[in-house]
Simulated assay, not measured.
Amino acid sequence: MDVTARTYRMPLPRLTLSPGAGHGPLDGAWWPRCDALELELPALVGSLDPGLGTVTRVTVDTAAWPDAPRTVLAPGHAIEVALTDVDVEAHAITLDCGTVGRRQLLVIPPGESVAAATWLLTVAADPRNALNAPHMLALAESGFDDEADRRRDGGPGIW
């Protein structure tokens, strides 16, 4: 029997959370694979630690999710979807987790580069991060449009 060693590349994480809520404007980041909220939200909710509580409602940006349904079915329950056009909530999703509270996550556009998405996932979950979602995306776009910059310093700094 010929056994050949194979190297498999693990998929990049699509969700990061800060160790505790309430440290800054963001509690982490989520990088959905597409812009269909009805397809992506059940996977997001299913990947959360049960200790965060049951997600009963989400608030999303109308610009990022223009065709979002008002209700999304997740395993075991329905999630109400509220739309907002408040600038500081652009590119974010707020998860209402019942009595446990709320978590606000940066939503990384599905087509974002791997380098920028990796940086955004890391920084958004850092309790020291003081930037909101629109500012983080603007920094990522300005810092990751040049391959030489990425190799030189790993992306834009935030502190």
Rank of each mutant, 00 (worst) to 15 (best):
G76I: 09
L52Q: 08
P109T: 00
A125R: 01
T84R: 01
L41Y: 01
P13M: 11
S18G: 14
S47N: 12
A64P: 02
A140C: 10
A43K: 14
H23N: 15
R33T: 12
D96V: 07
T118I: 09
I79D: 00
L121F: 10
L37D: 00
T7E: 14
T16Y: 09
D85N: 12
D67S: 14
L137Y: 02
D85Y: 02
G143E: 06
F144I: 05
P109E: 06
C97Q: 14
P156Q: 03
P42H: 05
L12G: 01
D146M: 08
G154V: 05
P134Q: 09
W31L: 08
L15N: 11
R102W: 01
G111N: 10
D153K: 06
D149A: 11
C97P: 08
V88C: 07
H23V: 11
L12F: 09
H77R: 14
G46D: 13
R6S: 13
L83S: 14
W31Y: 06
A29V: 03
W119R: 01
M10H: 15
C34N: 15
D126L: 04
A92D: 07
D67F: 08
A74Y: 00
R152Y: 13
M136D: 08
A117E: 02
V60L: 02
H77K: 05
T62F: 07
T84K: 00
M1I: 13
D153G: 12
V81T: 06
P50K: 00
R57S: 05
L106C: 04
G154M: 04
A43N: 12
N132Q: 10
Y8H: 12
L139T: 06
A21V: 14
D149N: 12
G53Y: 00
C97A: 15
P66A: 02
A68T: 00
G28S: 09
A5Y: 03
A5K: 09
P110A: 02
A68E: 02
T54R: 10
G98K: 03
L41P: 04
A29S: 03
A74H: 07
A117Y: 07
I158R: 10
R9F: 07
P19D: 15
Q104C: 11
